[in-house]
């Protein structure tokens, strides 16, 4: 077992453990902070899979802004009843069974389909090579995506404003 594999397994254990804590924690802000650990560990996995640019985008967008947005929303929607909102719904055991079934089913499919394959990492995803691919082969989806992002931002502003008028 190489050093890369050992580091990857460490990151994987951290990611799964903190994801479990995040989804079961009773404190909402703690749950959001555990999600930061998960997303950071996944970024580490990206680096180990030769996707260094994607890893930095993950750190910037997810850890930097998405989690901040979520913590803002948690604090704005804090209920007077306190910790009750952190509880899980009555169908948590159905949810647990479904989640475990999805994980085991997907995992079994992956093991059956890609059992002996190896990642060799011949093409490193540096900022240069990703930029080349993005602006040579993926220009049209990239431009459409900027339109989608603009529409989503305008929609978010409109939804937030129309509520405050009343």
């Amino acid at each position: 077992m190489t050093l890369t594999e050992i580091v990857f397994l460490v990151f994987a254990v951290i990611a799964v453990g903190s994801a479990l804590l995040s989804m079961t924690s009773g404190q909402l802000v703690h749950a959001a902070l555990w999600l930061v650990v998960t997303l950071g560990a996944v970024a580490g996995c990206f680096v180990l899979m030769t996707a260094e640019f994607v890893a930095w985008v993950q750190v910037l967008v997810y850890v930097g802004s998405v989690v901040v947005l979520v913590i803002f929303a948690l604090m704005l929607t804090r209920q007077p009843s306190g910790a009750r909102s952190a509880e899980v719904t009555g169908n948590r055991w159905v949810a647990a069974v479904l989640g475990a079934a999805a994980a085991i089913g997907l995992g079994a499919t992956m093991v059956a389909g890609f059992g002996g394959e190896q990642i060799e990492g011949r093409r490193i995803g540096t900022a240069g090579s990703i930029g080349d691919a993005l602006f040579n082969d993926w220009v049209l989806p990239f431009e459409i995506l900027s339109g989608v992002l603009l529409a989503a931002l305008i929609g978010a502003i409109v939804i937030s404003r129309s509520g405050s008028d009343r």
Binding site: A19, G99, A100, V111
Partner: peptide
């Protein structure tokens, strides 16, 4: 290749549990 794929399956299952529960 299995390491990231199995990790992704586990994270997907945990996320599904979170959405439902």
């Amino acid at each position: 290749l299995l390491y990231p794929l199995v990790l992704a399956s586990a994270l997907f299952g945990i996320g599904l549990y979170g959405v439902l529960a």
